[in-house]
Every structure is written in structure tokens, then in C-alpha cells.
Computed example of a mutant assay.
Amino acid sequence: MNEQKLSLRLEKVASYVPQAAVVADIGSDHAYLPAWLILNGVVKQAVAGEVVKGPFESANQLVQQLGLESQITVRLANGLEAIEPTDHVSAITIAGMGGSLISEILDRGFEKGILTGKERLILQPNIGERKLRLWLQAHQYQLVAEELIEEDGKRYEILVAEKATETTNYSPQELLFGPFLLKEKSQLLKDKWAQELVQKELILSRLSEDNPNHQDKINELKESISWIKELIQ
């Protein structure tokens, strides 16, 4: 592994890991991210957690090839259960999953007391960003940074959150678009939501106003469509 080489998506995730943190990368696949962080001197200790045996073995193999066994602990475990109290983890990265799945992973970790609130969360959902923001808000986490990038024709959002002393109440628009991204209003954000608008209008056209079961969904779609149009104008 070239110590300089990482996908743009993972490179951006890595850029939010604090210097000298102990990082746990959940769903680590080949352990590329923790290996890169160590090879580039960002962190000295890391945990690579993987629930699937194949990627777990690949992660182990890479760690051994690079001679990083004393710095990266690879564990076969479900979600945050890869983290042990003696690891003293101060940053958690979860990248490349849906927002619902990331929320479930955080939820289980929260319920089991693994998530202590001392960790910075660096999350990169492929879809379902709103659901993830709702989870963070409900569990008293505050977004400290957001970034939207494009790589190989796909757009990815990165959410960085830390435990707050009190709940941050985001507006419905901030939950949908992201408070930092909404403030910035980049062309990339407008392009993303212009594409989403087409999908939402298509779904709306297929729902019957006469069907009472559709009414809540119709109202929700109409509201989000109006917000999107306001954003991209």
C-alpha cells in the first residue's frame, strides 16, 4: 500500500481524525484508512473492526504486510463491539454505509455503553444523511463540520459530530440538507439536490391524492420539493 494513496472519499474522512487520536474504523474492509493514518503519522494506535470474515482476513493480511500489528488491532465484531474499554478510543470512523445502518450501529453502541460521548464521530453515509442527523440530534451530538465531495461521478457527504452539553435543535431544512452545507450552498450541493428533485417529483406524480394512505407522504414530498426549489434557484 502506497502511504500517499487513498480514495478521495476516505482521504476526506481521514482529514477529520484529530492528530494523535486513537481511532476505531468500523466496517474497515481492508484496513486502508487506519493503515494510512498510521503511515502518515496522524495516529499511533487504531482498531479496525469488521463483521464479515473475508474483509476481516483482508485487513489482517494488510496489517501484517505493513508490519503494523503493534499499532492496528483487527477485530471480527459487530459494529462498535469491536471497541474495548482498554483501547481508549477518541475517534470513530464509519464510512461507506447507509445512514440507517450507521444509525443502528451507533444506537447499539450507545445502548451497550460502548459509545461514551468522548469520541469524535466521523461518518460518511452513502444515503440517508437526514436520518443520521436526526440520530445525532436525538442523542445530543452536535455537528462540528460537514463536507460534500464528488468522486467517480458519485456524491458523498461527510458528517463530523461531537457530544454537546445540550441538545442542538436543527431546523427541518438543516436536517435535510445539513446545517454547514446549507450555509455554504455550494454548486455541488445544488447539483445533488437538483437530481434529487427529479426523483421526488417522479414519486409525487405516482401517488394518488385520493388515497388517504398516501396523504402524509404527499405532504412530506411537497414540503421537501419546495425547500429544494428554494435551495437550487
Rank of each mutant, 00 (worst) to 15 (best):
Y32K: 04
L33S: 00
A35P: 01
W36E: 01
L39T: 05
V42A: 10
V43M: 03
V43S: 02
K44M: 03
Q45E: 07
A48H: 00
G54H: 13
G54T: 15
S58E: 11
N60Q: 15
Q61G: 03
V63Y: 05
L66T: 06
L68F: 13
Q71W: 07
I72Q: 00
T73H: 01
V74M: 05
V74S: 06
R75Y: 08
R75E: 02
L76A: 09
L76C: 13
A77F: 01
A77V: 03
G79Y: 00
L80F: 00
E81A: 03
E81S: 01
E84I: 03
P85F: 07
P85R: 11
T86H: 08
V89K: 01
S90C: 04
I92F: 12
I94K: 02
I94C: 10
I94V: 15
M97R: 08
G99M: 12
G99P: 00
S100H: 13
L101W: 05
I102H: 12
E104I: 06
I105W: 04
I105S: 02
I105C: 07
D107C: 13
D107R: 07
R108E: 13
G109R: 08
G109F: 03
F110A: 11
G113P: 07
G113H: 15
L115S: 05
G117I: 15
K118F: 00
E119P: 00
L121M: 04
I122C: 12
I122Q: 02
L123Q: 08
P125V: 11
G128F: 10
G128H: 11
E129M: 12
E129F: 08
R130H: 15
L132I: 04
L132S: 14
R133D: 12
R133G: 12
W135L: 07
W135F: 15
L136H: 09
L136N: 10
